[in-house]
């Protein structure tokens, strides 16, 4: 223990001791918080590379087994329909993300720049559709889709997702457009560009990061979605990855090594996108109520 007085702040001799104790407590707290966040992921990954024979050992091994197997990451594509499900999810998510971003961008720009009647109601509708429990929309939509034959198809699911994602895309993009000063567009109009010319030369280039973030976020929501997917699509061949994943459990003996391997594969793109977007999301998801 060093007892040298730290003259800088005029502190007494003793606080050094309590400061070290405080530092240690903070460090311990940080470690615990990290463990809470990360341990389940660690456990997912460790399980995914465990040889199936050692899955049901007790007590469970905390560290990766000495004879870890990565082969599950290959065999899972042969043993299960994971490849098909991933491909289905990619198609649905790409389709909805493109459509939702496009429709949302036009609407968001209008909300941000034009004044028209019903603006207030539209903004409430935007918020409300993001807040409603999905099941309230899913059930009547299911009835309507069954009447017009859109059930059990990936295009049908893509259309259904627009109900969830167009409002999300619109709100996110509106906060982006609001951040682009109107004066820039006015300057361009005065410099001799038309409205449409201004949109393509000034607004669009400046909102590209916003469009990219919105597109990625929509993609991830569609990637993650489970309720609509399991209600609207019954044939396993048309399942998305979340329905496919969920189908693993519920069998008599759940093949946890395979489940966790698939889970890791499904998590990776979502996690990467989230880490990139987190700053925008806080602002966007709180309807601009909180600056991220």
């Amino acid at each position: 223990m060093r007892n040298a007085p730290s003259a800088r702040h005029g502190e007494a001799f003793l606080p050094n001791l309590s400061r070290i104790a405080g530092r240690l407590a903070l460090a311990a707290l940080i470690l615990i918080l990290c463990a809470i966040a990360v341990f389940p992921f660690y456990w997912m990954f460790v399980t995914s590379i465990r040889p199936s024979g050692q899955l049901f050992a007790y007590p469970p091994e905390m560290l990766p087994s000495a004879n870890s197997v990565f082969s599950t990451y290959v065999t899972i594509f042969q043993d299960t329909a994971l490849g098909t499900w991933l491909w289905n999810s990619i198609r649905v998510a790409l389709g909805t993300a493109i459509l939702a971003s496009f429709i949302g961008a036009m609407m968001a720009y209008s909300l941000s720049r034009f004044r028209f009647q019903g603006r207030g109601f539209t903004e409430y509708l935007l918020l409300a559709t993001q807040m409603f429990p999905g099941i309230l929309l899913a059930m009547p939509m299911y009835v309507l889709f069954s009447k017009i034959g859109l059930l059990n198809s990936l295009p049908g699911l893509t259309v259904a997702y627009l109900a969830l994602l167009v409002p999300v895309a619109t709100s996110l993009l509106k906060t982006f457009f609001d951040g682009i000063p109107v004066a820039l567009e006015e300057a361009s109009l005065i410099d001799g560009a038309s409205r449409i010319g201004t949109f393509f030369r000034i607004t669009l280039p400046l909102s590209l990061p916003g469009l990219a973030s919105t597109f990625l976020f929509c993609f991830i929501i569609a990637w993650d979605e489970y309720l609509f997917a399991q209600m609207f699509v019954r044939q396993p061949g048309n399942w998305t990855v979340s329905v496919g994943l969920a189908s693993f459990s519920g069998e008599y003996v759940t093949p946890w090594d395979q489940v966790m391997t698939a889970a890791t594969i499904v998590t990776l793109p979502a996690a990467i996108v989230f880490l990139f977007l987190q700053r925008y999301l806080v602002h966007g998801l709180t309807a601009g109520g909180v600056k991220g």
Binding site: P181, A183, L184, E186, A187, S188, L189, I190, D191, G192, A193, S194, I202, P205, L206
Partner: peptide, 20 residues
């Protein structure tokens, strides 16, 4: 007449320089 056809130039308070 639309702004682009008025043959005017304007300096804005926050300059409105195109950032890109």
């Amino acid at each position: 007449v639309s702004p682009r056809d008025r043959d005017i130039a304007m300096v804005f308070q926050n300059y409105a320089l195109y950032p890109h």
